[in-house]
Design a binder for these strands. Structure first.
Lengths: 220, 220
DNA sequence: GCTTCGCGTTAAGAAGGTGTGAAACGTAGA
DNA sequence: TCTACGTTTCACACCTTCTTAACGCGAAGC
C-alpha cells in the first residue's frame, strides 16, 4: 500500500484530499504547517507528497527545498491561480507536477499515478516512454520500432522531454539542457524546434503538450 | 574473438588482467571507474566483464545492478578477502562467479571459461552484415566472397561501423576506436577515409550513411 | 470590443557540417 | 637516396541545420 502525505493549512482541503486518496487505497497522513510537514515526511517516509504552495509560516517553496535535501519522493504541488511564477520555481526546485485549485478529482488522481510511475534519471543507454524509445548511445529515436530522423537539436530536446515524460519541464530547464552555456535567450527558437519535433512525431501516440507560461510536457 | 571488459580502479591490476586475457586471445577494454565502465559496456558489448567490488565513486554492486538492467553479459567479480557479505550480495544481484584477490592466473582463466560456457555459443572472429564479412583474425574484409583491399585505417573504420551495423556510430566513438589515445582531433581526416572506404565498397549492397552532426551508419 | 500576451507556423538568411580532389607529409623497404 | 604507400592537411563547392524575424491566432484581462 502506498503512503501519501498531505501538507496543507486548510482543514477542508485536507479532508477532501484524504477521502480521495483513501478511496484509492492510499494510507494518508497530514500536516497543517510546513515544519510539521517535514517532520512527518521524515518519520513516515511517504511514497508521494501533496504540497500546498500557500502555506503560512515556512512557505511551500521552502518546504520543498528542505525536503529535496534528503528525499526524492514525488511531490505534487497544489496551487491557486496567479501563482505562475511560484509554480515555475517549484518545478525547478524539484516538484514533479502541479494542479491548480479548484481541481477535478480525476485529474488529481491521474497526475498522482503519473508522477509515481516515474523513475529517476536512467543510467541505461536508453530512455523509454510508451511507444517511444530514445537511444542515447547511438543518438537514435524510435516510435514503435520505426526510426525518427532527428537533427541534433531536436534529439536533445526530445531527450529532455522524454527523461521527464509525463511531467512538466520548464522552458528554463529545457533551454539550459539543450543550449548549455548560452548567454542570449534561445527560448524564441525553442518554439520552432518544438514545432519541428511535433511534425516528426506525427500522430503516433506521443504528444508534446504546452503548459502556457510554464513549459512543456511529453505525454505517451 | 571474445571481448572482455575490465572495471577496476587499480592500474596495476588492470595491466595484469589485460596481459592474462590478451594471452588467451581476448580483445580487452578497460575502465577505471564505475560510470565509465557502464558506458564502455554499452558501447563495446563485451562477452564477459571483470568487475572489482571495491570501486571508488559508484560502487561495484551499484555498477552490477545497473548493468543487469539491460544486459545479461557474464560478470566475474574481483573481491578481496573479508568482503563475504558483499560477495553474496553481488551473486544475488546477478554476478556469475567471483575470485578473491590475490588469485592465481589459472584459476581466473578457468572460471572465465566456465561462466562463458554457461552462456550460449562463443563469438566468432568474424562480423557479418549482409554481403559484408569482416574477418578480425586475418584482417580481411570481403563483399560477396570478393576480397577488399583496405589500408589499416580503413579496416579499423570498417570494423567499427560493421560491429554496429544498422545503428548510428557517433564521430566521437569512431575516432576513439580508430585513433586511440589521440590528442589532436582527427575528425578532419575521418571524412577522407570515409570517402575512400565508400569508393572501395562501391555499389555492392553496402552503404555508409551520414547522419549530419552526429555520425555514420553502415547499411546492408 | 479592444489590447496584451504567449504560442504556433512559416520563410529566408546565417552558420556550420560534409564530400571531394589534390598536395604535402611521414615512413618503410629497395 | 629513391620509391611506394598510407596518412594527414588544405581548399572549395554543396547541402543541412540553426537562428531570427514576421505574422496569425486564441485566451485572458481591462
Amino acid at each position: 500500500m502506498s503512503k501519501a502525505l498531505i501538507i496543507d493549512d486548510e482543514q477542508q482541503m485536507r479532508r477532501l484530499l484524504r477521502m480521495l486518496l483513501e478511496s484509492r487505497g492510499y494510507e494518508v497522513c497530514e500536516a497543517d504547517e510546513g515544519q510539521r510537514g517535514l517532520q512527518e515526511a521524515a518519520f513516515h517516509r511517504p511514497d508521494v507528497v501533496l504540497l500546498d504552495l500557500g502555506l503560512p509560516g515556512l512557505g511551500g517553496l521552502e518546504v520543498l527545498k528542505r525536503l529535496r535535501e534528503w528525499s526524492d519522493v514525488p511531490v505534487l504541488i497544489l496551487s491557486v491561480r496567479d501563482q505562475e511564477a511560484t509554480k515555475v520555481q517549484a518545478l525547478e526546485i524539484g516538484a514533479d507536477d502541479y494542479v491548480t485549485k479548484p481541481f477535478g478529482s480525476a485529474e488529481l488522481l491521474a497526475r498522482l499515478d503519473v508522477i509515481q510511475r516515474r523513475r529517476g534519471p536512467r543510467h541505461t543507454p536508453e530512455i523509454i516512454a510508451g511507444p517511444l524509445k530514445v537511444d542515447l548511445l547511438h543518438h537514435e529515436a524510435q516510435i514503435a520500432d520505426e526510426a525518427l530522423k532527428l537533427t541534433p537539436t531536436e534529439f536533445a530536446l526530445l531527450k529532455v522531454l522524454t527523461e521527464h515524460a509525463g511531467r512538466i519541464v520548464t522552458q528554463n530547464q529545457i533551454v539550459k539542457q539543450v543550449w548549455p552555456g548560452q548567454s542570449s535567450d534561445p527560448s524564441e527558437g525553442l518554439r520552432v524546434h518544438i514545432n519541428h519535433l511535433r511534425k516528426k512525431l506525427g500522430d503516433r501516440g506521443i504528444r508534446i503538450v504546452n503548459e502556457p507560461g510554464i513549459g512543456y510536457r511529453l505525454e505517451a
